[in-house]
């Protein structure tokens, strides 16, 4: 069964049409990569699926795990299992990562009819997931993303993903700003957390290099607000070699 089915999606941002009839289906157990030139609408797709205010849906439909995605508020989408890894993770001064994540997780659990995790249970979970991404627990005690380097912010996003344990992760340029070592750690983290039969990943990236670590089952090219070409992992190599202009010509 498809986990995410996008059909003919159109939207506007500040009255400007960005997505122009985008269709895409992700099944559980699959990893899809979306590549494409600057301004193609990649981040817009991520924000629209997340439900960011200002990203106005004007047509089409999105079904997530059997539900109409646009019937849900952003926090309800999160509770339903949709996680958005931000290209630019946001700073929240004065709120520790641990507090932020515990409240988020317990809020999601509540929406699913589960009991909240106790402080002890949560710390244990956080330690495990932080270890996976090579992030010090001390980092989790610091305010959310405040004073983090670019690489730390991205790793922190992955720790959040590990703790929240979503069904679908939409990762918006998670590889940008990472050095080679961090890239490997993050790639392995994505595999460990999301490479499971009941989960799916939508990787938005400019570069092939992340795909060396996270092998996609499908690669799509997004241009002009639509998926214009789809293929297997080889397509990413071809794009890297020849550039969008050549491949799309």
């Amino acid at each position: 069964m498809s986990l995410l089915r996008i059909e003919n999606l159109t939207n506007t941002v500040a009255d400007k049409p960005i997505l122009k009839g985008l269709s895409l289906t992700l099944n559980a157990g699959e990893i899809h990569a979306i590549m494409g030139p600057n301004g193609a609408g990649k981040s817009t797709l991520a924000y629209t699926l997340g439900g960011r205010p200002g990203y106005e849906v004007t047509g089409g439909s999105v079904e997530f795990d059997g539900q109409d995605l646009f019937d849900m508020e952003p926090h309800e989408r999160a509770a339903a299992g949709l996680f958005l890894g931000f290209q630019y993770p946001v700073e929240i001064p004065g709120v520790s990562n641990l507090q932020f994540l515990r409240e988020s997780l317990n809020s999601q659990r509540k929406a699913r009819g589960l009991d909240p995790l106790s402080g002890g249970e949560f710390i244990k979970l956080a330690k495990e997931k932080a270890g996976l991404l090579g992030l010090d627990m001390e980092m989790l005690k610091r305010p959310v993303n405040v004073g983090f380097s670019g690489g730390e912010k991205k790793r922190n996003e992955m720790v959040q993903m590990g703790i929240l344990d979503p069904k679908l992760a939409i990762l918006d340029e998670t590889d940008s700003g990472l050095d080679i070592d961090a890239l490997r750690v993050v790639g392995e983290g994505i595999n460990a957390i999301m490479r499971k039969p009941d989960k799916a990943v939508l990787l938005i990236t400019h570069y092939q290099r992340l795909l060396d670590y996270v092998k996609p089952d499908f690669v799509h090219v997004l241009a002009g607000g639509r998926i214009v070409k789809s293929g297997g992992a080889d397509l990413a190599l071809e794009l890297e070699r020849e550039g969008y202009a050549e491949v799309l010509a």
Binding site: G50, G51, R52, P53, G54, E73, P74, H75, R77, A78, A79, F83, L84, F86, P89, V90, E91, I92, P93, G94, V95, Q99, F100, L101, E103, S104, L105, S107, Q108, A111, P143, Q160, L164
Partner: peptide, 28 residues
Amino acid sequence: SDDQLFYAMQRGLDQESAVALIVNGFAK
């Protein structure tokens, strides 16, 4: 910022919890 609100909501907090969290951080 709208960024902060959306970020917190994307992690599962409803709007009022998100505002409360951010405000409490500000006043910490």
